[in-house]
Amino acid sequence: MDWMSRECQRAWNETRRLYQSLRLPELSRLSGGFRLPEVPHLNGVPPLSLSAVPPISSRSLYRTYGPITGMVAHQLLAVNVMHPPVITRLIPKRDITNALLLMSFTGASLWLWRRPHIAGTLPSRRFPWVFLGSSMYVLGSVLMWAIIRSAIGRHPVICITLGLTSSTALTYSAIDYFKYLDKDFEPLEDVTDGTHNSDEEKYDLDI
Rank of each mutant, 00 (worst) to 15 (best):
A169E: 01
Y172D: 08
A174S: 10
M136T: 10
H196C: 11
G133W: 03
V191T: 02
A151Q: 01
I147V: 14
Y137F: 15
V191C: 04
E186F: 05
A169T: 11
K179Y: 10
R154V: 12
W129N: 07
C159V: 05
L170V: 14
T121W: 12
S135W: 11
G133R: 03
I158Q: 05
E189I: 15
Y180E: 03
T121F: 09
P123T: 12
Y137D: 10
G120E: 04
T168K: 13
G120F: 05
L181S: 01
G163R: 07
L162Q: 00
M136K: 08
H196I: 01
E186K: 14
E201V: 03
I147C: 03
V157R: 04
L188D: 04
P128N: 04
L170P: 03
I160G: 02
A151H: 04
M144W: 10
S124A: 14
T121L: 15
R154W: 12
A151P: 00
T161K: 07
R125G: 03
I160L: 09
K179N: 15
P187T: 08
W145I: 04
Y177N: 01
S135V: 08
L170S: 11
G140C: 07
W129F: 10
V191Y: 06
Y180Q: 02
G120V: 10
Y172W: 07
S134Y: 02
P128Y: 01
I160S: 02
W129Q: 13
S166G: 00
P156S: 10
M136G: 00
G120N: 09
K179C: 06
I160C: 07
D184E: 03
G194Y: 01
K179F: 11
I148D: 02
S198Y: 10
G140P: 06
T165G: 05
L188P: 00
R126S: 07
I175V: 15
L143S: 10
P187N: 04
A169C: 07
G140R: 03
V157F: 05
L139R: 06
S167T: 09
D176M: 09
I152S: 00
L122I: 11
F185Y: 15
P187W: 04
I175H: 12
L188F: 07
P123Y: 06
P156A: 11
I148M: 12
K183H: 09
